[in-house]
C-alpha cells in the first residue's frame, strides 16, 4: 500500500512489482505440480506393515485346485508362510470387469506354486456377486463376503477394485488401486515367491 508522505519513485515500484511476482510464482509452481498429480491416488500407510487379520466366510467356491466350500471361514492368520493376494471387488464396479480375466488366469497359474488368491466382496450382496461371477464365466479362486465392510476399512479401502499382495511373513508387500494386469500380477508374485519364507 502506498503511504502518502513518500511519493514513491518509479524504480521502487518495479521492485515491488517483482516482489509481488515472486509471491505469485510459488503458487503457480504449486498448481503446476498439482497438474502432475492424481488427487484420487492416496498412498496407503499399509505396505510394510502386518496385514490385518480377518475371518470371512466363503460365498463362491472357486474352481478345482483352489476350491473352498461355501460357508468355510478363511482366516489370514492360518495362511502364514504363503503368498496371499486379496482382491476387493463388487458386482457394480466397472473396473473389476476389466481385471477379472487376468486375475482368474494368473490365480490358476500360481495356485500350484502355493499362492492363495481370495476375492473379497466389497459393499455388495453375495447373491449379486455370484450372479456376476456366472456372467463373467467363472472365477478360479474363492470369494469371501465382508458383510459390514469392516475388513475393507481395516485395509484402508478407497473403493473397488483394490488388490493387496501379502508376503509369506504376513506383511502387506504392495497395494494396487484400480484394475490389475497379468504382467503386474506375475511380476509382483515372482518377486514375493523369490523372497525367503517366514520362519
Amino acid at each position: 500500500m502506498t503511504t502518502p508522505e513518500t511519493p514513491a519513485p518509479a524504480g521502487m515500484n518495479w521492485r515491488r512489482a517483482s516482489m509481488a511476482g515472486l509471491v505469485a510464482l510459488p503458487i503457480i509452481a504449486l498448481l503446476a505440480f498439482g497438474l502432475t498429480r492424481d488427487p484420487g491416488e492416496i498412498n496407503s500407510p499399509l505396505p510394510g506393515k502386518m496385514a490385518p487379520d480377518f475371518a470371512l466366510e466363503v460365498f463362491a467356491t472357486g474352481e478345482p485346485g483352489q476350491q473352498r466350500a461355501v460357508g468355510d471361514t478363511i482366516r489370514l492368520s492360518e495362511l502364514r508362510g504363503q503368498v496371499v493376494v486379496l482382491n476387493f471387488w463388487a458386482s457394480w464396479c466397472l473396473e473389476c470387469r476389466r481385471e477379472h480375466q487376468a486375475l482368474t488366469e494368473v490365480a490358476a497359474d500360481y495356485a500350484t506354486r502355493g499362492v492363495k488368491f481370495y476375492g473379497v466382496l466389497y459393499n455388495d450382496s453375495p447373491s449379486a456377486g455370484k450372479r456376476w461371477i456366472e456372467q463373467m464365466g467363472g472365477q478360479s479362486y474363492p470369494s469371501v463376503n465382508d458383510p459390514r465392510t469392516r475388513t475393507a476399512i481395516d485395509y484402508g479401502l478407497y473403493g473397488a477394485p483394490e488388490t493387496f499382495f501379502i508376503s509369506k511373513d504376513g506383511r502387506v508387500a504392495y497395494k494396487h488401486i484400480g484394475a490389475v494386469t497379468d504382467q503386474l500380477l506375475s511380476q509382483k508374485l515372482d518377486s514375493l515367491l523369490a523372497a525367503p519364507g517366514a520362519p
Partner: peptide, 9 residues
C-alpha cells in the same frame, strides 16, 4: 451397490 448391499446387511 447401496441397493444390492441390503439383502446381506
Amino acid at each position: 451397490g447401496d441397493l444390492a448391499a441390503q439383502d446381506a446387511a
